[in-house]
Design a protein around this nucleic acid. Sequence first.
DNA 1: TATTGTTATACTCTATAACTATA
DNA 2: TATAGTTATAGAGTATAACAATA
Lengths: 144, 144
Amino acid sequence: MIDPLIALPGYVLNRAAAANLANLNQQLSKLGLRHSDASLLMLVASNAGLTQSDAGKMLDIQRANMVPLVSRLMKRDLILKEPVDGRSHGLFLTRKGKAFHKEAVAIINDLEARMLESVSEDLRPHLMPILSALWDFNMKKPAG
Amino acid sequence: MIDPLIALPGYVLNRAAAANLANLNQQLSKLGLRHSDASLLMLVASNAGLTQSDAGKMLDIQRANMVPLVSRLMKRDLILKEPVDGRSHGLFLTRKGKAFHKEAVAIINDLEARMLESVSEDLRPHLMPILSALWDFNMKKPAG
DNA sequence: TATTGTTATACTCTATAACTATA
DNA sequence: TATAGTTATAGAGTATAACAATA
């Protein structure tokens, strides 16, 4: 059986990412979190008071799709909103949110570290520059 | 604004892959195809007569989720089924399917080539070994 | 006029369970 | 017993359009 796809960097990139996401979600399920929940917790932890629009821009999640994400974490008492002005709300971690953030970071760092170690030592320094280059290229939405 | 995520290889991997997929789907929309359609066309082109179970295993798409994918391409007269035995059906490209496959491959190869060129020449040889290592690691579903 | 948050909606992808018919 | 295809269903993620309130 011939696989013409495994020679394509984009295909391997996507399969690697999908598998990584599955692993991450499986690990985070211990906390009842999804990767999107964890990324928002990390963003709010580093930027207390940012609005959900700001968070959406950083995470590349549209405003409309931030609503159920923020709502879910608020219902679980992990984040709270404080009014900034009449239309914006700043996001903050609750005490419980800080505890979950700490656990999530531990899980994420563990998986990231093991993944890094799986790359041979001579290739490891090139990992982030290459992934960043691929991200940059594709972010610029090259029309072709 | 601090972004604690961009230092994480897994996060950058996922953002790069998502952006790549968006670009690919945008390019393939010229043909009315999705990336999943194109990958199946490529697999069938290289392995005429393989079953949809075989294809699903190679693409890591579950049997149940192959059904609407195959049906869609059959409705568009791009692939057809031939009975192998009482329960299996071999997949083949139609004449029209071969034409679409050719166009899809051109689009994919163009995007892949431009993406490769966006990586500096000294890093380029390390791209596939690194992506393959990340795929391997995450495919083994490391429990942690 | 532009921005923030929201609602509604739809499509894709993924995941599981259960059924049938065949091997 | 195991496999191939199918149906039904549910949950994520993503995309667009439209609206109210506010800047």
